[in-house]
């Protein structure tokens, strides 16, 4: 077992956003979180990355409860990468500087020592000729791939993706989903919040349906998409699968 969420709870003021989430993620597994906007997907990912403190519950990472409030979040965040919908690249740095900043500052490695590994990552995701570009010189799809490389450069054990294709023009979605497939083949453990239902159906090992801060249904994609048990899942799927 890689990651275990146990009764995770989170409120903003009086609104309960995560209402007792429990979830096991095995090593190398890809779990997709689906659910209506506002159901708590982003908040859940941000809690796992410790960007938001939990109110209650536990998050076990390899036998250690990382939700322990007294814990220093910094070393844990290094083990859990996160990529955001809006890329959030640092606009004053080139792509390669974006990627090297954290390894240089946190692991105290030199640019020269990092260069082979970083160059290989840019190469692999088709950005070898974009390393010296600034974010505003890159397309959305390229920026998002740089953001993924930036997270990977910290050699995380788990990657979290928060609707990373939602801000992209439709023709750029494919190149980013391609990266996710490649990571899955590497055996990366991943949790994705996504609206790409076709992708979730084809690639995910497991799908979790969130509704008002609870996981109302989970299972293999074939079952959740074709034979959902919950009426609310059926309602959600019919909304997203047949738009208009």
């Amino acid at each position: 077992m890689k990651l275990r969420l146990d009764n995770v709870q989170k409120s903003f003021g009086a609104t309960r956003v995560l209402d007792g989430i429990s979830l096991d993620v095995a090593k190398g597994e890809m779990v997709c979180l689906i659910g209506a906007s506002g159901s708590g997907k982003s908040t859940l990912l941000r809690c796992i990355n410790l960007l938001e403190p939990l109110d209650d519950g536990a998050i076990w990472l390899d036998g250690e409860d990382i939700a322990e409030p007294a814990l220093d979040p910094q070393p844990i965040r290094q083990r859990i990468g996160i990529v955001f919908q809006s890329f959030n690249l640092f606009p004053h740095m080139t792509a390669v500087e974006n990627v090297m900043l954290a390894p240089r500052r946190v692991r105290k490695e030199t640019r020269e020592a990092l260069r082979p590994e970083v160059t290989a990552l840019f190469d692999r995701f088709g950005l070898a000729d974009r390393m010296g570009h600034y974010p505003d010189q890159l397309s959305g799809g390229q920026q998002q791939r740089v953001a993924i490389i930036r997270a990977l450069a910290m050699r995380p054990e788990i990657m979290l993706f928060d609707e990373i294709t939602s801000a992209l023009d439709p023709e750029l979605v494919g190149e980013v989903l391609q990266v996710l497939k490649a990571l899955k083949e590497d055996g990366m453990t991943m949790i994705l919040a996504t609206h790409e239902m076709a992708f979730a159906r084809d690639v995910a090992d497991r799908v979790c349906v969130l509704d008002h801060g609870r996981i109302i249904e989970e299972g293999p994609p074939a079952q959740v998409f074709t034979a959902p048990r919950e009426a609310r899942t059926r309602a959600f799927l019919s909304r997203v699968l047949q738009p208009v």
Partner: peptide, 25 residues
Amino acid sequence: QSQRNAALSLGLSGGDSMRYVVLPQ
């Protein structure tokens, strides 16, 4: 705030996030 969060999520310290990400901008 998302810039600071992006820096923190990579494991940078608060001080480094300020110095390398927020302040230059």
